[in-house]
Computed example of a mutant assay.
Amino acid sequence: MNTPMLQAEGLRVTFPGSRRGVGRGKRSVTAVDDVSLHIERGETLGLVGESGSGKSTTGRAVLKLVALETGAVQIDGQDLTHSRGAQLRRLRRQSQMVFQDPYSSLDPSTTVGASIAEPLRVHESMSKQQRRDRVVELLDLVGLRPSHADRYPYEFSGGQRQRVAIARALALNPRLIVCDEAVSALDVSTQNQVINLLEDLRERFELSYLFIAHDLAVVRHISHRVAVMYLGRIVETGPVERIYEQPAHPYTQALLSAIPAPDPKLRGTKRIFLSGDIPDPSAPPPGCPFHTRCAHAMDICSRERPAMTPIEGGGEAACHLQTSGPRLAGQPLSATKVPS
């Protein structure tokens, strides 16, 4: 059995809260709550959810960029959670991150060539000329010219800056790349170019991606599997086609109904409008965290947190509709008679 490129189990990340009013103590916020996921070699896992659902914190947690309260992370079978010193340094080479804003993630006072060469300077014993040659090679990989190495970030378009960020992420030949909203700041045509570049690089170097995004149309295009987050927890996972064609969780169904259709008259799914906002993460509701906004909510939903249940067609969903009765027993949400 092959070892997954990424194996994360029971991740929990809590941030201290600020004081609210006179005489009140700090209320901590659990941004990631018991999240488990895995990514195979050469696979792209899309991570989706509303703003504030914990997607970006999860991405940082699997790279040890934020402190874990509980949980464990393995990259290519090696423990990252308890790694220190030289061992952590070696694991840093295998995993990199591409951030949302390509301008703020690059030093404006440094040429892009120097930014790309920085990980080589830190992790490799290379001469100045060797680093220069590697920078030129990386620029070519992402569709930029050697002369671009001597320019500054402000001289590039948003799409070109994101290509520079991708080149820097590739410098140490990583096996896992976390893309945190890597195309959300770009226009549609540039998004397509960057997505195609990422797919080409994945196939060429057998990369694994954790692709974090709120644009579900983009996620469907690039991902093999999808994980849906709500209020810090994974509520559904599965192969991309099953998730998009037969969602098993009401929250997933609502997200998918919001995907814009080229011709609204031809869209096959009626738009589902959720009532209210995401609950306060410092005081989440009891039971299923989604029950306060769910049209299918039952009495049990406000009392007990649902476990992940296997779904026909692959994946799992944390929903009492799958277990109470059971009403669905692994079937897609479209099989229920409960009105939405």
Rank of each mutant, 00 (worst) to 15 (best):
Gly159Phe: 08
Val62Arg: 06
Gln74Lys: 15
Gly238Asp: 10
Ile259Ala: 00
Gly71Cys: 14
Val29Cys: 13
Leu333Gln: 07
Pro284Gly: 10
Arg84Gly: 08
Ala117Gly: 05
Val35Ala: 12
Val29His: 05
Gln331Met: 04
Val164Ile: 15
Phe205Lys: 09
Leu207Ser: 14
Lys265Leu: 14
Phe99Tyr: 08
Ala171His: 05
Val32Ile: 11
Arg41Phe: 00
Ser282Asp: 08
Glu43Cys: 08
Leu11Thr: 02
Met1Tyr: 03
Pro289Thr: 08
Thr3Ser: 06
Arg305Glu: 14
Ser53Trp: 14
Ser147Asn: 01
Asp280Leu: 06
Ile116Lys: 06
Val188Trp: 01
Ser208Asn: 07
Leu11Phe: 03
Arg121Asn: 06
Arg151Met: 08
Leu47Glu: 04
Cys294Ala: 03
Ile272Tyr: 09
Lys270Tyr: 01
Ala165Gln: 05
Ala169Gln: 10
Val164Asp: 03
Val226Thr: 15
Ala169Asp: 15
Ala182Gln: 10
Gly158Pro: 08
Ala182Met: 05
Pro264Arg: 08
Pro286Asp: 01
His296Arg: 13
Arg134Thr: 06
Glu155Lys: 00
Met5Lys: 04
Leu144Lys: 06
Asp79Ser: 09
Leu256Val: 03
Ser56Leu: 03
Phe211Ile: 09
Asp101Ser: 09
Lys26Phe: 08
Asp76Tyr: 01
Gln191Thr: 10
Thr44Asp: 01
His221Pro: 02
Val112Asp: 01
Val122Phe: 07
Glu40Phe: 00
Gln74Ile: 02
Ser127Trp: 00
Thr3Asn: 14
Pro306Ala: 14
Gly159Cys: 03
Arg204Asp: 08
Asn192Lys: 13
Phe15Trp: 12
Thr292Arg: 09
Val219Pro: 02
Asn196Ala: 13
Cys319Gly: 13
Tyr103Asn: 00
Val228His: 02
Gly276Val: 06
Leu88Gly: 06
Leu63Tyr: 12
Arg225Met: 04
Lys64Asn: 10
Lys26Ile: 10
Glu199His: 13
Arg131Asn: 00
Ile222Phe: 11
Leu207Gln: 12
Ala335Glu: 11
Glu245Ile: 02
Ala171Asp: 11
Thr3Gln: 13
Thr190Gly: 01
Glu241Arg: 11
Pro119Tyr: 05
Ala283Cys: 11
Ala283Pro: 01
Leu45Tyr: 02
Leu216Glu: 05
Gly232Asp: 13
